[in-house]
Simulated scan of single mutants.
Amino acid sequence: MSAARDPRDHRLYRLAYRTVLRRIDAERAHHGAFALIRLAARVPGLRAAVAARFAPPHPALAVEALGMRLPGPFGLAAGFDKNAVGVRGLALLGFDFVEIGTVTGQPQPGNPTPRLFRVPTDRALVNRMGFNNEGSAAVAARLAALGSDRPALGVNIGKTKAVPESDAVQDYVTSTERLARHADYLVVNVSSPNTPGLRDLQATSRLRPLLTAVREAADRSVPDRRVPLLVKIAPDLADEDLDQVADLAVALGLDGIIATNTTVSREGLRARPEAVAALGAGGLSGAPLRERSLAVLRRLYARVGDRVTLIGVGGVENADDVWERVLAGATLVQGYSGFVYAGPGWTSALHRGLARRLAASPHTTLADAVGADVRSSHP
């Protein structure tokens, strides 16, 4: 797709957002847009047209990570497709990999609606979805039906709300046994603020037995290959806690860390405080998360280097943000909230911009650029 198409894509989406989408409840708008994405993947002529418009990225962006050979480093974060109902359609839009979930051991409805809100002045979202999903048995059956006709796929698992904390490990193990064989990588989510007590599992005394049990369950369930295992952490951890998680990841031979999930902080927002307060509790994502998420990524890379694969997410809006994450230590980068505000042309613009930044840099490949800024400041 030519660069000249990009402004038109953005103008059309901005017009649709201003005139229609922003007037619709955010969760209803999500379901409507996602239905169109799924439709595009099912109709042969439409599928071909969408695939042609959102063509693969520049060959120079190809990366190898977590045992996957990917056309580029940019994927869709968990939360958009909780039940693996639209992974083919999302791949058509140009995402290099898709992470589904969060999936829990048992099906659950999540928190009462409304539970997803836009903060347009800050290009942010607030959500308290509460891991609404059909449960790991249903999602596993759907992934089995997909077979190999799918993009590179991460599966994000969390704790069922009704399960007591004393049984949390077994709940994660149940999901692992059902889902690991269908995953290119598996993510243990202990960082959502919307399930009571979940973030307590980030304490290394509780995280160690959880990750160990999930690793063992994945190996039992998929004896013919090693399913990469990652943990997703919160941006609200203190620096010393980040260091402990990083050290634990190295000690356990963990494959990766995703930095970061949403934040409970509301600091630095441009929106009126009373308007933000009216939205209630939930995790904040989008542009305001950018600086803290980047700082967490830098600290993790300085601690683990290339011993653990890092995925950067949080406040990623454009190619500059992706490039900055790569230089800070991210082998892969994810986004979600930026998709809501930028629309379907988002991935194409990111890929082209990233290719230009790589070409203008002293680095031959993205792999060469990973962590370059951190290495230069910590010789």
Rank of each mutant, 00 (worst) to 15 (best):
V308W: 07
A295H: 10
L242V: 09
S285A: 13
V340M: 08
L269W: 12
R226E: 11
T260D: 07
G256R: 04
L289G: 11
L248K: 05
L289M: 11
L310Q: 09
V264P: 04
G343S: 01
G253H: 01
L300F: 10
Y336K: 06
A295K: 06
W346N: 14
A342Y: 10
T212D: 04
I257E: 01
R298C: 12
V316L: 05
G343Q: 00
A330F: 04
L284V: 15
E267N: 15
V245I: 15
L229R: 00
L229T: 01
R352C: 07
D306M: 09
R226G: 12
V296E: 13
A328P: 05
L310H: 07
L289Q: 11
R225S: 11
A275I: 13
V276I: 12
R226K: 15
G280C: 11
A278F: 06
A238Q: 11
V222Y: 04
A330G: 07
R270A: 15
R325E: 12
L237S: 04
W346C: 13
I233G: 00
L327C: 08
T260L: 03
P228N: 02
E216W: 02
A259Q: 11
V340E: 10
I311V: 15
K232S: 03
D219I: 05
S348Q: 14
A330E: 01
D247N: 10
L237A: 02
L354R: 06
I233R: 02
T262M: 00
E274S: 13
G345D: 08
D321N: 07
L230W: 00
Y341E: 12
L350Y: 14
R307Q: 13
L242N: 06
L327F: 07
Y336S: 12
Q334C: 10
G315I: 02
T260Q: 04
A278C: 06
L279H: 10
V250H: 05
R266F: 07
L269P: 13
G315T: 08
V322F: 10
T260Y: 00
H351P: 07
A342L: 07
W346P: 10
D255V: 03
V227L: 05
L279D: 10
G345L: 03
L327M: 08
E324T: 15
I233H: 02
S337K: 08
Y336R: 09
R225Y: 05
T212W: 00
N261K: 00
V304Y: 07
A287C: 08
G338P: 03
L354C: 09
Y341I: 11
D321Y: 01
L254M: 11
K232C: 00
T263H: 02
D236R: 02
G280F: 06
D219L: 02
V222F: 06
D247W: 08
I258A: 01
A238V: 08
D241S: 15
L332C: 03
T331I: 06
L248T: 07
V322W: 01
A246W: 06
A234H: 00
A238F: 04
S221T: 10
V340Q: 07
R272T: 14
S221Q: 05
E274C: 04
Q334F: 03
V227N: 09
A319K: 06
V313A: 02
P228S: 03
G282K: 00
V231H: 01
L211G: 04
L242H: 07
